[in-house]
Design a protein around this nucleic acid. Structure first.
Lengths: 113, 113
DNA sequence: GTCATGGTTAGACATTTGGCTAAGTGTTGC
DNA sequence: GCAACACTTAGCCAAATGTCTAACCATGAC
């Protein structure tokens, strides 16, 4: 079970904020510099930088500075653990449904006898 | 774009905590009462109740009280919006890759001429 | 009726979060 | 050189989070 995975907590926490999700969506369309990223949010630069730090911490974006401009890019494979967790949960859930199915089948069989 | 969706924020926030994820995993295997849910976490009941409230708020679990025991059950379809958002992001990302592809193809064509 | 059980409410507390301003630092353009 | 630009750092603040204890219902078993 991967519930104590700090990765997952960082990822989910990073995604729990609309501003950060908007930044990711913007970056999915291609790299951008910080000011460009800040524009649509209406937030001040330091605030945006902190969101950016959260995203970077979760491994969702990587940034590099060239001259005075920092360019940010999405790391799409960083979302993989989330899909993984979702699939895990679904597997458990479906295993349970299967168990219930066979239980019900057994009950019906019993009734026929 | 569904980034301002409060649902998503609630969902991601609910999933950002290992304790809550563990509770969900437990519930994926079948319903449980609160004390049962609290057991493995080592946390006090009021704390667990608050986690439960967060999960319920996100629509991830539903609970009902019968006599003095409250039974909690998973709401697996509540995870759907997350898959949806993930797919959305991937679509944007892939559209971008496609654009890059055709750009490169165009470049190569130009060079041949 | 009384006592244990299972949950609930209320409040306290330290930490984290999300926002800000103000004052830097390093680059680039003229 | 110097001004504008693109961050960066430091520090403030209110609100939210995750935990706890202590006291309070309500139900079920005797």
């Amino acid at each position: 079970m991967s519930n104590h995975d700090p990765d997952l907590s960082l990822l989910f926490h990073a995604l729990a904020d609309p501003t950060r999700r908007a930044m990711l969506t913007r970056l999915a369309a291609g790299p951008a510099q910080v000011t460009e990223l800040a524009g649509p949010t209406g937030l001040r630069l330091p605030t945006v930088m902190r969101h950016l730090a959260v995203l970077a911490d979760a491994g969702l974006v990587s940034t590099a500075k060239d001259g005075r401009v920092r360019t940010c890019a999405l790391n799409p494979q960083a979302l993989a653990p989330i899909r993984g967790w979702l699939d895990e949960q679904r597997a458990i859930w479906e295993a349970r449904l299967d168990r219930m199915d066979s239980y019900v089948l057994a009950l019906m069989k019993d009734r026929k006898e």
